[in-house]
Design a protein around this nucleic acid. Structure first.
Lengths: 332, 332
DNA sequence: AACGTTGGCGTCAACGTTGACGCCAACGTT
DNA sequence: AACGTTGGCGTCAACGTTGACGCCAACGTT
């Protein structure tokens, strides 16, 4: 438990200046092959590791990225965090993680703490009404990748799924299964400007021919329990409901449970389409028909966009839009 | 996007030395109320935030904790990470996260990177055969909380669930439901020294009176697919199997699926008990009987143990053992 | 032979803090 | 009146790096 070795210790051992050791450590060049060999040997022997804190203080690069999520217990999230963490590690970076519960104040606190720790960039699942915060940090020079929203600001890049298309696919699937009286369960954590799924769904219904009714819309927490409540709300708006498009798979599962509890069969009486394609959706009975969002793809694109932003700030870039697909199983 | 304000800027504005501003920022005392007020006003106006990197360089405290997990996509994990992150944030700390896939080399890499970034401590779900690593870092002065294993070393504290009791509860439940030919699906990622569930289960069977057979044991990945494979393996060892205790709920779900696919009914033909009590277990059909591990409790205890260790290193402490309970649902 | 270039270093200062120490005026104590 | 204490600061150095710069010997060029 003695002190960690520093550049100075290595330099002393080899008989060169710390600056030369630093050059070797960073592969800067400007040293002879023999010096290099001796330095590397001393590094090995003393188990020297560069102190990232000291390095960060002067370079303003800490080798860290922050992930700001809504709620880790949302089953959509872990695979994403895992992917992002992987990619970041491949780039030699370590990942901070914090969740906001979609609360803008907590998001502000999280961003402050990340910023004070000199993160090189952050990937954010924005909390409610927090665009100004993000714009502000972008202007102050923090590279930010925003997921699932469009933010126009310096140092901000956007990566989103084509959720309107997801809504359209869900609507078409339900329509072609003969459903005529449909409801959407939206999420309270999703502000109006981010209701892309819902917009796509409603638009597809509006555009389609046929005798179907316009969709009714309920709002709920994005959880199984929320789905149960959302189902009840939809039912009160349209008692003979025959199709549901849910904000995510958890909500869809909740809706299916509530449907079963009310004596309705899924999909015979009510067809249900979810969104996300979490693992559970395959294992549930009936297996859930859903809009698949490719989380591996999202992780890759988000990290790539962030590194882009870090390497070449100031440059404008187009939002990255990721395709979605409908996975037909048993529930619709 | 101009430079961030520093102590120096605040000091200049107020007309005191940076050291005095630092004293105010850290509530050290040694300044007059009027000075304090002026300093706070200037801090507000300049939007000054202490630079944690500079602070960490000299205090050797970075205000960060690291969480080293096996795999974020294991549904047991997110609630835990969420809880830990919460508690850490309450203490003003930011959380690093990295997963190892239970690979000791990756764990080594993760610990190196955390250490280089001066984490104040880490909470580790140890990878296979990685106790020496942990002992080593403990000796070098890193406070470590190890989950679900016993490690005797300086700066290392242990928090574990009473898994032997979990195994015992599962065995008793299956026995009292009349099961006589039982199998255990263990996990490949769990080294022999950490097979507490299995030991408890087998011990309870051995101790119990009756005409039941000794348990057969299969090994599998701790996933649904693993559970399916584990079921097949158990069946090949004991074709008329009537009870299963699975490493975790995912494995139990896999076993139930394989049982159904083979035409067996759960629980009538084969009773299945899982372990963890993940959310999905309530929603699956049949709902899973399982050993509940209280993850909120684990988060709290782990963070508390870590802060204990950080505040008073060197001191010996007892492992914290958390109780478990059996939740009877439909599958057994 | 005189010159410019370059390889291989070293020196110094700085990043933004805090620990250690010192100083002085104001005050209380004897 | 002389003294010790304490409140309220300031100064300086250090944490472990890297950027900027300079220096010198060795070499190639004309």
């Amino acid at each position: 438990m003695d002190r960690e070795a520093t550049l100075h210790d290595v330099a002393g051992k080899v008989g060169v200046s710390p600056r030369t050791v630093s050059r070797v450590v960073n592969d800067e060049g400007g040293y002879s092959p023999e010096t290099r060999k001796k330095v590397l040997a001393a590094i090995e022997e003393l188990r020297y590791r560069p102190n990232m804190v000291a390095r960060a203080l002067i370079t303003k690069r800490s080798g860290t990225v922050g992930l700001v999520g809504g709620d880790m217990t949302d089953p959509f999230f872990p695979a994403l965090a895992e992917g992002i963490q992987h990619r970041a590690r491949e780039a030699g970076q370590t990942m901070f993680f914090a969740s906001t519960g979609s609360d803008p104040d907590r998001q502000a606190e999280v961003l402050r703490s990340f910023w004070a720790r000199a993160v090189d960039g952050v990937i954010v699942f924005p909390a409610l009404d927090s665009i100004d915060q993000l714009t502000d940090y972008g202007r102050r020079g923090l590279p930010i990748v925003v997921v699932d929203d469009l933010v126009e600001a310096p140092n901000v890049a956007c990566v989103l799924f084509d959720l309107p298309e997801g809504g359209r696919l869900a609507a078409q699937h339900l329509l072609s299964a003969g459903r005529r009286r449909m409801g959407v369960i939206s999420a309270t954590v999703s502000p109006p400007r981010r209701r892309h799924r819902e917009r796509g769904f409603v638009a597809a219904l509006t555009e389609a021919d046929g005798d179907h009714l316009p969709a009714v819309i309920a709002e709920a927490d994005p959880t199984v329990r929320g789905g149960e409540a959302g189902f009840a709300e939809l039912l009160s708006l349209m008692p003979d409901l025959d199709g549901i498009f849910a904000y995510n798979d958890l909500v869809a599962i909740g809706a299916m449970r509530a449907a079963a509890a009310s004596g309705r069969r899924v999909p015979e009486d009510i067809a249900v389409v979810g969104c996300d394609d979490i693992e559970m959706s395959t294992y549930i009975t009936p297996a859930l028909t859903t809009i698949r969002l490719d989380r591996g793809r999202l992780s890759n694109e988000a990290v790539a966009a962030l590194h882009d932003l870090i390497d070449a700030p100031a440059q404008r870039r187009q939002p990255v839009v990721l395709p979605v697909e409908l996975v037909a199983r048993e529930s619709a």
